[in-house]
């Protein structure tokens, strides 16, 4: 399903954190948001998964205004992997994944066979079926992330929002997580720190700096040496992957200013 962010603005305590951002993702696309720390990526995404109400602008999902839907209706169409995965209590993996069914169930409804089938399928999709009875707190970082993705998939969303899904993961898991969400079906909107991962996986990239979109397009068009110098303050060299030919970047810091 298509998702469109239309002139979205967020002001908190007088500061404009997101400034009239407009972007979209077509059905089945994986669209990446990149930008330096504090550029407004997470704030923008929090508006999309409704942890935050935008000051102005709209998020449209399949043409409908997301904030006009009830939170439950919204959560049936859009799932998210926020950064705040706190686990104060000892839920099992199966219980965590079952939470993904929350927007599909009434408050006192029993878990149906359909719920169980969807949850089992989601765990299988992320290759974590064997973890079902484990305590979430006993899992490694990579296992936890896969389980949280399974929870989002159990929501059967049409759009999936990921906020730094590869944080704290080793390189194999970073590569795997994006391949996994890509294969899982829904349209994906993801904030990513790793520009090489973004270049490899995203159909389109939007670069955010200071709450504004400063560049949009395919990774190849967007990730130019000039833009990376402007936005991230690094010197970048574009190289082709020796096997696949895909765009990859090598970085170093600009030379220090000579002492006066």
């Amino acid at each position: 399903m298509r998702i469109d962010i239309d002139a979205l603005t967020v002001e908190i305590a007088g500061a404009r954190l997101v400034d009239e951002v407009t972007l979209g993702a077509a059905d089945g696309e994986l669209v990446g948001l990149v930008g330096p720390n504090g550029s407004g990526k997470s704030t923008l995404l929090r508006c999309v998964y409704r942890a935050l109400r935008p000051s102005a602008g709209a998020v449209r999902i399949g043409g409908e205004d997301l904030h006009a839907l009830t939170t439950r209706e919204g959560a049936r169409r859009l799932a998210a992997l926020p950064q705040d995965a706190v686990a104060e209590f000892d839920f099992t993996v199966a219980e965590i994944v079952a939470m993904g069914r929350t927007p599909h169930q009434g408050p006192v409804a029993r878990t149906t066979d359909e719920d169980r089938r969807v949850c089992d399928g989601a765990l299988r999709d992320v290759g974590a079926a064997h973890l079902a009875e484990r305590g979430f707190l006993t899992l490694s970082g990579g296992e936890r992330q896969r389980v949280l993705i399974a929870r989002a998939l159990a929501q059967q969303p049409r759009v999936l929002v990921l906020d730094e899904p590869t944080n704290h993961l080793d390189i194999a898991h970073q590569l795997e997580v994006l391949r996994l969400v890509r294969a899982s079906g829904p349209t994906v909107l993801a904030a990513l720190h790793d520009l090489n991962l973004a270049a490899l996986h995203c159909d389109a990239l939007h670069v955010i700096a200071g709450g504004r979109i400063v560049a949009s397009g395919t990774p190849d068009d967007v990730l130019t040496a000039d833009l990376l110098a402007d936005v991230f303050g690094v010197r970048a060299h574009r190289v082709a992957h020796p096997e696949t030919g895909a765009l990859q970047l090598l970085f170093d810091l600009p030379p220090a200013h000579p002492a006066p």
């Binding site: 929090r46 998964y49 409704r50 942890a51 009830t70 939170t71 439950r72 209706e73 919204g74 959560a75 049936r76 859009l78 799932a79 998210a80 992997l81 926020p82 950064q83 705040d84 995965a85 706190v86 686990a87 104060e88 209590f89 839920f91 219980e95 965590i96 939470m99 993904g100 929350t102 927007p103 169930q105 408050p107 989002a152 929501q155 929002v161």
Partner: peptide, 17 residues
């Protein structure tokens, strides 16, 4: 059910509807 979602964090709860 809502308590389960809330126990996982405010943002997660919001994402779960």
């Amino acid at each position: 059910r809502r308590l389960n979602a809330l126990a996982m964090g405010d943002e997660t709860a919001a994402a779960l509807g």
